[in-house]
Computed example of a mutant assay.
Amino acid sequence: MAASTIEGIIPEALLDHLSRLVLSPVLPIAYPDVPFTPPSSGYLKAYYIPNGNERICITPGSPNRYQGILQVTVVFPAGQGAVRPNDVAGQIASHFAEGTQLQTAAGPVRIDKRPSVERPIQDTNRIQIPVSIDWVAYL
């Protein structure tokens, strides 16, 4: 089902773009609120984090600025080193390069800066590396 509101169109565009990421080997993706059984190997976890909207003009019907973060966390088993998960994080950052525009029925959703590959989170059985993708839309 295609989204019909701005609040649905934006995450639909971002998550669709994520689904088009080509990795070798392929890593499954855990999407927000979709049943997922984590494999014992690596995978990605997606979080859609809107950060509200702002009225940019006082004219009725003028666009609002919507902004937020798509966070994609790279998850790998512990004990295999940090190179491969960091490389995957870099590939995600490149896939959502600064200036990427995702066309929607409401207008473009733009990635306004290079995504940030964050510090690894290490626990006893896995390493997680968050990639924060800032987006903005004037809709």
Results as ranks from 00 to 15, higher is better:
Met1Arg: 04
Thr5Val: 13
Thr5Lys: 14
Thr5Gly: 12
Thr5Trp: 12
Ile6Thr: 12
Ile6Tyr: 14
Glu7Ala: 10
Glu7Ser: 04
Gly8Tyr: 13
Gly8Asn: 08
Pro11Met: 07
Glu12Arg: 02
Glu12Asp: 02
Glu12Leu: 02
Glu12Lys: 03
Leu14Cys: 11
Leu15Thr: 02
Asp16Phe: 04
Leu18Gln: 14
Leu18Glu: 11
Ser19Pro: 03
Arg20Ser: 01
Arg20Leu: 06
Val22Leu: 02
Ser24Arg: 13
Val26Asn: 06
Val26Leu: 03
Leu27Pro: 15
Leu27Asn: 11
Ile29Ala: 01
Ile29Cys: 00
Ala30Thr: 01
Tyr31Asp: 00
Asp33Leu: 00
Phe36Glu: 06
Pro38Gln: 02
Pro39Asp: 04
Pro39Ala: 06
Gly42Phe: 02
Leu44Asn: 02
Lys45His: 07
Tyr48Met: 00
Tyr48Leu: 00
Tyr48Cys: 00
Tyr48Ala: 00
Ile49His: 06
Pro50Gln: 12
Asn51Ser: 09
Gly52Thr: 08
Asn53Asp: 08
Arg55Cys: 02
Ile56Asn: 08
Cys57Met: 03
Thr59Gln: 12
Thr59Lys: 01
Thr59Phe: 00
Pro60Asn: 04
Ser62Tyr: 11
Arg65Lys: 13
Arg65Glu: 13
Gln67Asp: 10
Gln67Val: 13
Gly68Cys: 08
Ile69Glu: 14
Val74Cys: 03
Pro77Val: 05
Ala78Pro: 05
Gln80Asp: 13
Ala82His: 09
Val83Gly: 01
Arg84Trp: 13
Pro85Met: 08
Gly90Tyr: 12
Gln91Asp: 14
Gln91Tyr: 06
Ile92Ser: 11
His95Trp: 05
Phe96Leu: 15
Gly99Tyr: 08
Gly99Gln: 10
Gly99Cys: 05
Gln101Pro: 12
Gln101Glu: 15
Gln101Thr: 12
Gln101Met: 10
Gln101Tyr: 08
Leu102Ile: 08
Gln103Ile: 11
Ala105Pro: 07
Ala105Glu: 09
Ala105Ser: 10
Gly107Trp: 11
Gly107Val: 01
Pro108Cys: 04
Pro108Asn: 09
Val109Tyr: 13
Val109Asp: 14
Arg110Pro: 04
Arg110Gly: 11
Ile111Gly: 08
Ile111Trp: 15
Lys113Tyr: 12
Arg114His: 11
Arg114Met: 13
Pro115Ile: 06
Ser116Lys: 06
Ser116Gly: 00
Glu118Phe: 00
Arg119Ile: 13
Pro120Leu: 08
Ile121Asp: 13
Ile121Val: 14
Ile121Phe: 07
Gln122Phe: 15
Arg126Glu: 01
Ile127Ala: 05
Gln128Pro: 01
Gln128Val: 00
Gln128His: 03
Ile129His: 01
Pro130Trp: 07
Val131Arg: 01
Ser132Glu: 10
Ile133Thr: 15
Asp134Thr: 04
Val136Ser: 11
Ala137Val: 14
Ala137Trp: 15
Ala137Phe: 01
Tyr138Ser: 08
Leu139Val: 15
